[in-house]
Simulated scan of single mutants.
Amino acid sequence: MSVLKQGAFYTGKYRNLFKEIGYSEEEVEAKLEKAWSELFDEDSDMRIYYPMGDDKGYILDTGNLDVRTEGMSYGMMMAVQMNKKEMFDRLWNFSNTYMQHSEGRYKDYFAWHCKPDGTRISQGPAPDGEEFFAMALFFASNRWGDGPEPYNYAEQAKKILRACVHQGENGLGDPMWDPATKLIKFIPESPFSDPSYHLPHFYDLFALQADDKDRPFWKEAAEASRAYLHKACHPETGLSPEYAEYDGTPAKPQPHGDFGHFFSDAYRVAANIGLDWEWFRRDPWQIGQSNRLQAFFRGIDVADYRRYTIDGKPFEEPALHPIGLLATNAMASLAADGPDAQHFVRLFWETPLRSGERRYYDNCLYFFSLLALSGNFRIY
């Protein structure tokens, strides 16, 4: 095989970057288990997971005291990676019962946030939730097998992806992917995208597992997203905007604010590129991109992380989620081969989970990075 065909999808082998810089497998396993306990055990004051009744549970956004499809789908992905089926099923049952629409313009999409009792706060969806729900469900089907509805995981995943591609063909609603460009939208109604939503490594797997008629679409979407990220990431800093037009340029200010800068959503781009390289290695540009991003942040202390223009000018406003940003900078080391790759892995290892009310988003990104850098964010 060529060098570009040696990703984990082909080899079944996953790098353990902590081991590469000298930590033992026992130390790595202990760190992963400790982080899991801090985030998910009922007696932990750091926890973000709350069981509900006999068969449900939710991930709490501790800063906003609500439940989001982002967190629910992230929690499901964490659970399937850690082989925690009961927790996975509780999260999925909550999401399916309270958040997923059964009719109307958003049929089979999910209301993007609700109260912890399941009452919807907003009806509209956020597509990053749908794509993570679908991937986690396919992994659950492949790891544990399908059960009775709603635990017929593969069919539930296909139903979500069917809506993402075909919603609106009957005149009601909108698809989550722009049919002309094959790019994911910020919301179904928007004429622009969010670079951090682009998960080509998921779409390549959807192309193997979605409805037969939609598999060519997902293959095209994967290649379109890889090409899009070339345009959305700044050629010198590696920074990408929170929202971007379909041509990759920063999006115009929106009614809820100006998000044409590097801010909290955009942190995830580095992590997504790193994981895409680890799994598929289809785009060698990802190596240089990851090196550029790490070079930009190398001289900045984590405590001084901020919002930035994509060409690197800092705002007065500090980063809301500095630990999350460090986690994604470290996850870029899956693709990076420059002088900063090991630095960020070591710095991340030495940094604890975030405590306090704003811990939810940081620690979700932290746990994904911990999984990925230890070789435990796997394809099932």
Rank of each mutant, 00 (worst) to 15 (best):
G7W: 06
I21N: 05
E27Y: 05
E29G: 10
A35C: 14
S44Q: 08
D45A: 10
G53W: 04
Y74I: 09
Q81R: 04
Q81H: 13
K84Y: 04
L91W: 02
W92M: 01
W92G: 01
S95P: 00
S102V: 12
S102N: 14
G104A: 06
H113T: 07
R120Y: 08
Q123R: 10
A126M: 02
G129K: 01
G147P: 03
N152Y: 09
A154H: 12
E155S: 14
A163H: 00
Q167Y: 00
G173S: 06
G173D: 02
F186Y: 12
S190C: 07
S196G: 06
S196W: 02
S196R: 02
H198D: 00
H198E: 02
L205C: 09
L205P: 04
F206E: 00
A210G: 04
P216W: 02
W218Y: 13
H234M: 09
E236I: 13
E245C: 07
K252D: 10
H256M: 11
H261K: 11
A270M: 15
W285M: 11
D304Y: 11
R306T: 05
R306H: 14
T309D: 00
G312K: 06
F315W: 12
E316V: 12
G324S: 09
L325Y: 03
L325Q: 14
L334N: 06
D337C: 04
F344Y: 10
L347D: 13
F348P: 00
E357D: 13
L365S: 03
S369A: 15
L370M: 13
L373E: 08
L373G: 06
F377L: 15
